[in-house]
Computed example of a mutant assay.
Amino acid sequence: MKTLKTMLFAASIFVTAAAIAQNKPVNPADFHGATADKKSYKVVYQLNSDDEKVIKATMKNIMNALDDPRLKGKLEVELVAHGGGVTVFRKDQPYETQLKVLQERGVILAECENTMRERKISKEELFDFISYVPSGNGEIIIRQQQGWAIVHP
């Protein structure tokens, strides 16, 4: 029995070494990123911070994805704000123009109603062009199970 185990162990090492030996390093000049070979892609960007840098970075990340030539015409995007992220949708904040640009490009803008209740925020305090979901976390869970990628900048 010990001999059989030793032989199997030795064989596994040989197979592993052979596989490693066949891996050739990728020449950086030959690599151009992943190929977008699917018909469509779906992504949720989660925003739960009121930090101006995080908000701006999140919107910039969304624009970068929308502008990626591999994803042109194939990308569905949703921005889900909850917790501190509600700041991005407040009328007293400077994000209206950027949000409208995103929305014009097809981005779904969704605010968590739980956050609004917990923070006593009314819909009148938020931009009138956004949508609402019962729970930001619930939205993310459902979308992920539907196959959407989740990005949390």
Score class of each variant (00 low, 15 high):
9 F>V: 14
9 F>I: 14
9 F>Q: 06
12 S>K: 01
12 S>Y: 06
14 F>A: 15
19 A>R: 02
19 A>Q: 12
20 I>M: 15
20 I>G: 10
20 I>D: 02
22 Q>M: 07
23 N>Q: 08
25 P>F: 08
26 V>M: 11
26 V>R: 12
26 V>S: 04
27 N>P: 03
28 P>Q: 05
29 A>C: 02
29 A>T: 02
30 D>K: 08
30 D>F: 10
31 F>Y: 15
32 H>M: 01
33 G>P: 12
34 A>Y: 12
36 A>W: 12
39 K>S: 09
39 K>A: 15
39 K>C: 00
42 K>W: 00
53 K>P: 00
53 K>D: 10
58 T>C: 09
61 N>Q: 05
61 N>Y: 04
64 N>Y: 05
64 N>V: 11
66 L>A: 10
68 D>F: 04
68 D>S: 09
69 P>H: 00
71 L>T: 08
71 L>G: 04
73 G>W: 09
73 G>A: 03
74 K>T: 12
75 L>R: 03
79 L>Y: 09
80 V>K: 03
80 V>D: 09
83 G>D: 12
86 V>Q: 07
86 V>Y: 05
88 V>Q: 09
89 F>G: 05
90 R>C: 03
90 R>T: 11
93 Q>Y: 05
93 Q>D: 03
94 P>M: 05
94 P>F: 05
94 P>T: 13
94 P>S: 05
95 Y>W: 06
95 Y>T: 06
96 E>D: 07
97 T>K: 08
99 L>T: 10
99 L>V: 01
104 E>K: 15
105 R>V: 11
105 R>I: 13
108 I>V: 12
108 I>A: 13
108 I>M: 12
